[in-house]
């Protein structure tokens, strides 16, 4: 009986550990939806000239992300990117799917790329710098994160 209890205890612990590793995939991964800004409740909209096929893929990516299927969302976004490689918002969306999957260095890379494509879009620049800040913070680079936060604040100020 003692042995049985030990086995049960072991199973419970193993279960808890596996649950923990599943849910721990980045800041705010719960309920993340493609298109949302890093700041909860705000949205980064695709530019008006975004084409119908890309909009269709964005809708599918959004649905996949709401279903928790971030790798499917990523795949839709990459397809969109192949159609409109210079659409900076798409790079920003992918950066966020990476961020929420704890792929920090890749998230920062995609956010920088997004910035390079839309130097004049302040809202997007601020969001990208926030992604970079979070990515840096999560990778232990707190000084770099503060720097990125400052850049984000510069773009956010009216």
């Amino acid at each position: 009986m003692q042995f049985l209890r030990l086995v049960l205890l072991g199973l419970v612990i193993a279960g808890l550990v596996s649950c923990a590793s599943v849910s721990n995939n980045g800041p705010g991964s719960e309920g993340y939806s493609v298109g949302e800004s890093v700041i909860p409740g705000t949205v980064i909209k695709p530019p008006d000239e975004t084409s119908p096929p890309v909009r269709l893929l964005l809708a599918q990516a959004r649905q996949a992300s709401q279903d928790g299927q971030l790798s499917s969302a990523e795949s839709y976004l990459e397809r969109a990117l192949r159609i409109e490689p210079r659409n900076a918002v798409l790079w920003n969306y992918i950066a966020k799917t990476y961020l929420y999957q704890a792929r920090y260095s890749q998230a920062a890379g995609m956010a920088s790329k997004s910035n390079s494509l839309a130097p004049a879009d302040k809202v997007l620049q601020a969001d990208n710098w926030r992604i970079i800040a979070q990515a840096r913070a999560q990778s232990g680079d707190s000084a770099g994160a503060r720097l990125a936060e400052r850049r984000a604040a510069e773009y956010s100020s009216p």
Partner: peptide, 28 residues
């Protein structure tokens, strides 16, 4: 922006189940 050259996008099992993705990676 350095993007490692890649030839593979995705790998599926024989039954069409997703196995591995090779996502775009970009680093300035």
């Amino acid at each position: 922006f350095q993007t490692p050259l890649r030839a593979i996008r995705e790998v599926l099992t024989v039954n069409g189940k997703p196995l591995q993705r090779f996502p775009i990676r970009v680093q300035q």
